[in-house]
Computed example of a mutant assay.
Amino acid sequence: MTTHELRRDPRLDRSRAAILAAAVALLSEGGIERATIEAVTARSGVARSTLYRHFPNSAELLAAAFQELLPPLPAPGPGGTPRDRLLRLVLGQAEQLAHAPTMVAVVWMTASGLSGETPAGADERTRLASLRRHIIDSYRRPFNPVLAECLAGGEPREGDLDLAAAQLIGPLLFNALITRRPNDRAFCARLVDDFLAAHG
């Protein structure tokens, strides 16, 4: 343990925990629109200046709240075929959906730019664009190298990876939120095999 860790003010940990708890609650209750800086400070009882010591902007606060609610998937290890790694990712996503279907849907729709109407204000557009970058970094990144390896025809464009991710995750979301059919191993394996056959 370093000297810095020994001298850390415990009030910082308490204020950060209170801020995150408020952001998580607001995000769960009303989505991204409800989890504003003003709402979080009001609910947490933490001053705005203290909030900004922990989170320099609302996008970083919301990204941290998403990660509290739904930890990002770890990148698959290097072992196995691209199919094996892709299947591990899809199974991991299916497992998350089984525990928090609505929150996973919110994360993926935000990461895919499908989070509803485009906000009118420039500030809100900037906020959502920044949040989208954070979410892509945390939640989409594990898929990108595996998808790039699976897609035929050379170096894929970002849009190709977006479409590929949507083709894989969309059916999982549809099952979890609409049909309520299980995203079991057999379904995930068929999804991956159909995807690979189409893109082989």
Results as ranks from 00 to 15, higher is better:
L69P: 00
P78Y: 00
L69S: 14
P78E: 12
G153I: 09
D193H: 03
A39F: 05
L86Q: 01
L73R: 04
H199V: 08
G153H: 06
G30M: 10
R53K: 13
L12G: 14
N183G: 13
A22K: 11
A120Q: 11
A189D: 14
N57S: 11
D84E: 15
C150M: 09
A39Q: 12
G30F: 13
I19T: 13
R180W: 01
N57V: 09
A65V: 03
P142T: 10
L128P: 00
L20S: 05
A105D: 13
L87Q: 09
L173A: 12
P78K: 13
G80N: 05
A23L: 11
I135R: 07
F66V: 11
A35W: 04
V24A: 15
A165R: 06
C188M: 02
R7T: 13
A152I: 01
E38R: 12
D13Q: 09
A176L: 08
F174K: 11
A105V: 02
T126S: 14
S130R: 15
G200W: 00
D84K: 03
P145H: 08
L27R: 10
L172H: 06
I135V: 15
V90R: 08
T118Y: 05
A17K: 14
A39G: 04
N183C: 14
F143W: 12
E155N: 08
R185M: 05
S130Y: 01
V24K: 14
L20C: 01
G79V: 02
D194C: 06
V146N: 03
I37Y: 00
P82G: 07
R140W: 02
P156M: 02
W108H: 09
L51H: 10
R8L: 10
Q67Y: 00
R180S: 10
L168N: 04
D9I: 04
A25C: 05
D137H: 12
L191Q: 12
L196I: 10
A98V: 01
P74S: 13
V24H: 07
L97M: 12
E95H: 15
P142D: 10
P156F: 09
R132M: 13
Y52E: 02
V46W: 09
V107D: 03
R140F: 15
E68Q: 15
F143K: 01
G170Q: 09
L114S: 04
H134E: 13
G77Y: 09
A111M: 14
L73N: 06
L61Y: 04
F187R: 04
A111L: 12
T118F: 00
R185H: 07
A42K: 12
P76S: 09
L73D: 03
A176H: 02
L191T: 12
T81F: 03
G116V: 08
P119C: 03
E29G: 13
P101S: 04
W108T: 03
C188G: 05
E29R: 11
A111S: 12
A164D: 00
Q96V: 01
R48C: 05
P74H: 06
L173F: 06
R43A: 15
S130I: 00
F143E: 08
Y52C: 03
A186N: 06
R83C: 03
C188F: 02
E33H: 11
I169A: 11
L172T: 03
L168W: 08
N144S: 13
A100L: 03
G79Q: 15
A18E: 12
A197R: 15
D162C: 08
R190S: 11
